[in-house]
Nucleic acid binder design. Structure first.
Length: 578
RNA sequence: CGGGAUGUGGCUCAGCUUGGUAGAGCGCAGCGUUCGGGACGCUGAGGCCGGAGGUUCAAAUCCUCUCAUCCCGACCA
């Protein structure tokens, strides 16, 4: 039995100055979290209850899918990371430190190394496979810029699962099983979400899906087909080449002076042509190599696509000094003709025409009538650009929408990257040693709490979906000083708990207005209001936080009436009684 | 790491331009009146003005440095 007067639920009347997005504001105001330092938060009782609800659902579905729960350490030895090769690859996001003996350590941002190390010591035979181990644990990633409260913290809670299979087919089954589990999890959590194809790095294929909660404050953009079920992260979404090729002969290239015009807008305005006539030449350094990417003037390069195409570990935009060396001109005048780089890649779309405008690789000049096949050395044509709203769905050709999403889950087929690097092998039926095929599957447990509030709120406060609400019902006692009313309330509270409800009773000596405001703010799905006027008539008032709908329940038939009322609230959320 | 901003009772902020011994609202404690959508009155507690150094008779206020936080960008399986 929880009474507000004995609880620790500090609500805030005003928005904290530091909170920018709605979920952050509400988590603070509803007394669920408090910041300790940048990107690091304490969960107050109300926040912890919510977190536990989310974790419980995740656990249930993971267990149902046959995964086994473990609990790995947060502190990890550098040696393991050196073995996998990530000690040098993982950036400053990996918080490194030394223990008293000077041994390198880090706080785990993820646990591939630890789990691989665990499994390789124990699993030696194909008979022991497949296996899927998971944990719900605190991760630490020293983000350059933590922001938006729980949405992008440095310390956060994550469920991470790792599957080990003896062959590809098994790994695909593990993947599918996790995918299905994730669908169930996010459905049960009461969230509006999409599973989208995600960038899977050098592994390729569609072996990576992200689970995105749709919300305008999301940090990711996704491409969603308006007709079929195609959905992909913008990083991955394929740009379809449209329009007929133009094989008209291109006149000889011609140098034209464009003094001081270095942006696409400046150049095309000056030459009085549309930006789609121009080729943008973007210079990058990829693992020490100088490379150029060409896209149409009105397009954006998709760096992820480019990086994957090159198979590069690091891809950084060239500094102005490098641009000067490679192109022989200041930034803004680079072009593919005579460019001094190791490789030049063009977006597929550039194959459609043979008459382009490009930078001339000399200051204040551009070239007209550039035919890439005639005038430049192109290593190849590939899908390099960002998809736009004007592009068709790569599957069915219908239109695309580009909504924002919050990534709350990621399923990923790892392959043998870690098992090979760390020598996690088993003996197959023929006694041959083979690396295990791995998969990794993450869910941002604490982020879900924030994502949920991004999706479920109004001007009065939070609106928690019943499955993850800290309590299901708030019982508001209007006049605590009335002995009779309090007695009724205690009695009712007891009955509700007997019925299986989690109830927070607001028994504070506050004016009714304060309690109503707080109730809406903390957003428990059901509110039961017990006042003296109602009591005199033998009724209490019931309100659904989501719809705001009020009704009266007869006290002499409370249990049945509460049950029906609660069914209605579940229905408000599109849920069924469990 | 670049750009911008902000640090003043628990919270939200004013005061800084033009130096002169620190304010408001909310919250908190007490008393009284109120009591179905963040009441009102009175009384009271609570701040070495982020930190260090400097200028000055005198610094929240001016100068320098530093730390922290937030925003934009870059970055990020």
């Amino acid at each position: 039995m929880m009474r507000w007067s004995n609880y620790y639920l500090p609500t805030l009347k005003e928005d904290p100055a530091e909170a920018e997005v709605i979920s952050h504001r509400l988590l603070m105001r509803a007394g669920m979290i408090r910041k300790l330092t940048a990107g690091v938060y304490t969960y107050l009782p109300q926040g912890l209850r919510c977190l536990d609800k989310i974790a419980r659902i995740v656990r249930e579905e993971m267990n149902r899918a046959g995964a086994l729960e473990v609990f790995m350490p947060t502190v990890q030895p550098a040696d393991l990371w050196k073995e996998s090769g990530r000690w040098d690859v993982y950036g400053k996001e990996l918080l490194r430190f030394q223990d008293r003996h000077g041994r390198g350590c880090c706080l785990g941002p993820t646990h591939e190394e630890v789990i691989t190390d665990l499994v390789r010591g124990e699993i030696k035979s194909y008979r022991q496979l497949p296996i899927n181990l998971y944990q719900i644990q605190t991760k630490f990633r020293d983000e350059i810029r933590p922001r938006f409260g729980l949405m992008r913290g440095r310390e956060f809670i994550m469920k991470d699962a790792y599957s080990f299979d003896k062959d590809d087919a098994g790994a695909d089954r593990s993947y599918q099983s996790m995918f299905d589990a994730y669908m169930r999890i996010f459905t049960r959590l009461g969230m509006v979400f999409r599973a989208v194809e995600a960038d899977s790095g050098p592994i390729g294929g569609s072996f990576s899906h992200e689970f995105m909660v749709l919300a305008s404050t999301g940090e990711d953009t996704i491409a969603v087909c308006t007709a079929c079920d195609y959905a992909a992260n913008l990083e991955k979404a394929e740009a379809v080449v449209r329009g007929a090729g133009d094989d008209a002969q291109c006149p000889p290239a011609e140098l034209v002076l464009t003094p001081g015009r270095h942006t696409v807008e400046e150049v095309t305005a000056f030459l009085e042509v549309g930006p789609e006539k121009l080729i943008k030449t973007l210079l990058y350094e990829a693992d020490g190599q100088a490379v150029a990417a060409l896209v149409r003037g009105d397009r954006e390069l998709n760096e992820i696509k480019f990086k994957n195409l090159l198979g590069a570990k690091f891809l950084t935009m060239a500094a102005p000094e490098q641009v000067r060396v490679w192109s022989g001109a200041p930034v803004g005048f680079a072009g593919p003709v005579g460019l001094n780089v190791d490789a030049v890649w063009a977006d597929r779309e550039l194959g459609l025409s043979r008459d382009w405008i490009t930078g001339a690789n000399q200051g204040d000049a551009h070239l007209l009538h550039v035919d890439l096949s005639r005038d430049a050395k192109i290593n190849g044509y590939a899908d390099l650009r960002q998809v736009t709203r004007e592009d068709p769905c790569p599957r069915c050709g219908a239109g695309l929408e580009l909504p924002k999403g919050i990534e709350v889950g990621h399923v990923f087929k790892l392959g043998t990257k870690y098992s090979e690097a760390m020598d996690a092998q088993y003996l197959d039926e023929e006694g041959k040693a083979r690396p295990m095929i791995m998969g990794c599957f993450g869910i941002g447990v604490s982020r879900i709490m924030a994502a949920c509030l991004e999706q479920n709120n109004d001007e009065h406060g939070a609106m928690f979906p019943p499955p993850i609400a800290p309590f299901q019902i708030e019982l508001i006692v209007l006049n605590v000083k009335s002995r009779e009313l309090m007695q009724q309330a205690e009695n009712l509270h007891h009955q509700l708990e007997t019925m299986g409800f989690e109830v927070l009773m607001d028994d504070r000596e506050e004016r009714p207005g304060v309690k109503f405001k707080d109730a809406d703010l903390i957003g428990l799905p059901g509110q039961l209001i017990l006042g003296e006027k109602g009591l005199a008539r033998g009724v209490l008032e019931a309100k659904s936080r989501k719809t705001g709908q009020r009704s009266e329940l007869a006290l002499d038939d409370v249990q049945a009436q509460v049950r029906t009322w609660w069914q209605g609230i579940l229905a408000d959320w599109g849920l069924h009684a469990s």
